[in-house]
Amino acid sequence: MTQDTAILTAENLSIDIPTETGTLHAVRGIGFDLKPGETLCIVGESGSGKSLTSLALMGLLGGSIKTTADKMEFDGIDLTRAGKRQMRSLRGARMSMIFQEPMTSLNPAFTIGDQLIEAMTLHVNGPKAEARNRAIDLLQKVGITSAESRMSQYPHQLSGGLRQRVMIAMALMCGPDLIIADEPTTALDVTIQAQILRLLKDLQKEFGMAMILITHDLGVVARVADQVAVMYAGELVETGPTSEIFAVPSHPYTRGLLRCIPLPGKSDRDARLGTIPGIVPSLVGEVSGCAFRTRCPHARDTCRSDIPEQTATGHNHSFRCIDANGFAGVDETEGANT
């Protein structure tokens, strides 16, 4: 596999969840490519389907949830056809995930050392002493002091920031080719957030991993992403290189998210931050038209029924809107009208 060959590919990925009131179309026809060493940030509000997408890639969704895709491939392995045993051999060894809440992801009944060592002994044949030495080495790499003594501690004895660092070390135990970080800085203070993001980027460069970072914070995206996928109501509404997404945002939702971020040196201290009125619509039952139309300042009657197509605007940059010209540079101070 070369650096120009995608290690992970998803095409027309959809996730449907049965509920008492009908089928929830949680993720609808999304697709992306991820190359070795590249960082893809999936950004969007809560409920947009970001975490479900990552769980589908890892094969961690429940049996009642229906996942379909024209193609979902990791380094030549068809994930749509992979059995439970094959997925277990991939998870932790070649594909690792850092979950959103480290306190509930770590087992409170086992020491940090036991959990780190288990992650390696399950996938790599070798002496336990070797796994222990690697665990201590990785704890030091992720910035945990007195790493050897920490091995005998339990999760409740560590702060939130330290637990998150332990989760990162655990994800790296087998030297994976892909790491998925699901909002790894949630509930951490700003200083610790910056440290965790810098740590992930440094470790990615050192180990040559591809990374998917799931977040709702475009400020985080600007610091670490090579590619951005903006997700809304189960769909990717805009994708492209980070520089183009920030310089020429074309979808109204992307522009709305960017207006919510204060810009150092540009935003007035007393100025109100932008907001996106309304909430993410229900995706239960039949879904038609543009899902963003009830919140879009440019919505028209045709947005109720017309299905937006992907429109290319530049190198690997596209957006999903019935207006093929996009809304870069358009004033969006008016409210939604549909």
Results as ranks from 00 to 15, higher is better:
residue 2 T to P: 11
residue 2 T to K: 10
residue 4 D to M: 04
residue 7 I to Y: 01
residue 7 I to K: 00
residue 12 N to R: 14
residue 14 S to E: 08
residue 16 D to L: 06
residue 16 D to F: 10
residue 21 T to S: 13
residue 22 G to N: 06
residue 26 A to H: 02
residue 30 I to K: 02
residue 34 L to G: 08
residue 43 V to G: 04
residue 51 S to D: 06
residue 51 S to G: 07
residue 52 L to M: 13
residue 54 S to M: 10
residue 56 A to D: 02
residue 58 M to C: 15
residue 60 L to A: 05
residue 67 T to L: 07
residue 68 T to Y: 00
residue 69 A to M: 03
residue 70 D to H: 11
residue 71 K to Y: 03
residue 74 F to C: 05
residue 75 D to M: 15
residue 77 I to V: 15
residue 78 D to T: 03
residue 81 R to E: 13
residue 84 K to W: 00
residue 84 K to L: 09
residue 86 Q to D: 12
residue 90 L to N: 08
residue 96 S to D: 07
residue 97 M to L: 11
residue 100 Q to W: 10
residue 101 E to D: 15
residue 103 M to K: 04
residue 104 T to P: 06
residue 110 F to D: 00
residue 111 T to V: 05
residue 114 D to W: 09
residue 114 D to E: 15
residue 115 Q to N: 09
residue 116 L to N: 02
residue 117 I to P: 02
residue 120 M to C: 03
residue 126 G to C: 05
residue 127 P to S: 14
residue 129 A to G: 05
residue 129 A to K: 14
residue 141 K to S: 13
residue 149 S to P: 00
residue 149 S to I: 11
residue 150 R to W: 01
residue 150 R to Q: 11
residue 150 R to F: 04
residue 152 S to V: 10
residue 157 Q to R: 13
residue 162 L to E: 15
residue 165 R to L: 05
residue 166 V to L: 08
residue 167 M to L: 11
residue 174 C to T: 05
residue 176 P to W: 07
residue 177 D to C: 01
residue 179 I to A: 04
residue 186 T to A: 14
residue 188 L to N: 01
residue 189 D to K: 10
residue 190 V to C: 07
residue 191 T to D: 07
residue 203 L to C: 12
residue 207 F to Y: 15
residue 207 F to D: 01
residue 210 A to E: 03
residue 213 L to D: 01
residue 213 L to I: 15
residue 215 T to W: 06
residue 217 D to L: 06
residue 217 D to W: 01
residue 217 D to E: 09
residue 219 G to L: 09
residue 220 V to L: 12
residue 220 V to E: 07
residue 224 V to A: 09
residue 225 A to H: 05
residue 229 A to P: 06
residue 229 A to F: 01
residue 230 V to R: 07
residue 232 Y to S: 02
residue 233 A to C: 11
residue 250 S to A: 10
residue 250 S to E: 08
residue 251 H to K: 09
residue 253 Y to H: 00
residue 254 T to I: 06
residue 255 R to D: 00
residue 260 C to W: 01
residue 260 C to D: 03
residue 262 P to K: 04
residue 266 K to T: 12
residue 266 K to I: 15
residue 273 L to N: 08
residue 279 I to T: 15
residue 282 S to V: 12
residue 283 L to M: 15
residue 284 V to R: 11
residue 285 G to K: 12
residue 298 H to F: 15
residue 298 H to L: 12
residue 298 H to K: 14
residue 302 T to K: 14
residue 303 C to L: 10
residue 305 S to D: 13
residue 305 S to K: 10
residue 312 A to L: 13
residue 312 A to T: 14
residue 313 T to A: 13
residue 314 G to C: 08
residue 318 S to F: 08
residue 320 R to P: 05
residue 328 A to Y: 13
residue 330 V to K: 13
residue 331 D to N: 14
residue 331 D to E: 13
residue 333 T to Q: 10
residue 336 A to W: 09
